[in-house]
Nucleic acid binder design. Structure first.
Length: 154
DNA sequence: GCCAACGTTGGC
DNA sequence: GCCAACGTTGGC
C-alpha cells in the first residue's frame, strides 16, 4: 500500500464535499506528471487531502483509493473547464482514480506547520514553486503525518 | 531542438 | 494584488 498527497482548492472541491458524498472521481488533473502518479495508484492506497489556495493551506483529510484507471469524463465535455479537445475517446489522455472518504482532521496540519516539522525531502509540496497536484509520500513520512494529525499537540 | 512568450499555480 | 516557479506553446 502506498501513500499519496492530493491537492484541491476547497472552493472547487474540499474535504467537506467528500465527507458529504462519501466517494468522488478525482477529475480535472491536466498535468502529465500528476496523471502518471494517478496511474500508479492501486486500490487501497491512502491519500492525504490537501487544501490549496485557501487560508490556511494544509492537510485536512485522509482518503482511500477505491477504483483505478478511471477515464476522466470532463476531458470530453466542451462545457467543462477541463475540456481537452485533443483527447480521443478511444485513447483518453486523462486517467484518474476514485477515492472514498477516510478521515477529516480539524484543524489539520497547516502548511506552516508542515514546513516547521518536515523537510523539502520529506514532502515534495514543500519545495519552492511546487505545483504538482499529485505527489507520492514515503511510508515513514506518511506515518509521521498520521501520528501528528491524530495528536494535535506535540 | 531551442527558447522566448505566455498562462497557470499557489503562497503570501 | 503581487510575484516566483514552472509547464506549454509556437516560431524558427
Amino acid at each position: 500500500m502506498a501513500f499519496w498527497l492530493l491537492k484541491s482548492e476547497p472552493d472547487v472541491y474540499g474535504i467537506a464535499d467528500l465527507e458529504r458524498e462519501g466517494e468522488t472521481l478525482w477529475d480535472g488533473v491536466r498535468n502529465y506528471q500528476a496523471r502518471n502518479f494517478l496511474r500508479q495508484m492501486a486500490v487501497g492506497d491512502r491519500a492525504f487531502f490537501y487544501h490549496s489556495n485557501t487560508k490556511p493551506p494544509g492537510i485536512v483529510g485522509l482518503m482511500t483509493v477505491s477504483a483505478t484507471e478511471q477515464v476522466d469524463p470532463s476531458q470530453f465535455d466542451p462545457d467543462s473547464d477541463y475540456y481537452d479537445p485533443r483527447s480521443q475517446a478511444d485513447n483518453p489522455t486523462w486517467i484518474t482514480v476514485k477515492l472514498i472518504f477516510g478521515d477529516r482532521f480539524q484543524p489539520g496540519l497547516t502548511l506552516a506547520e508542515l514546513r516547521a516539522e518536515f523537510t523539502t525531502e520529506d514532502l515534495l509540496i514543500l519545495r519552492p514553486g511546487n505545483r504538482l497536484s499529485v505527489t507520492p509520500v514515503e511510508e515513514d513520512v506518511a506515518e509521521r503525518l498520521l501520528q501528528r494529525l491524530r495528536s494535535p499537540a506535540i
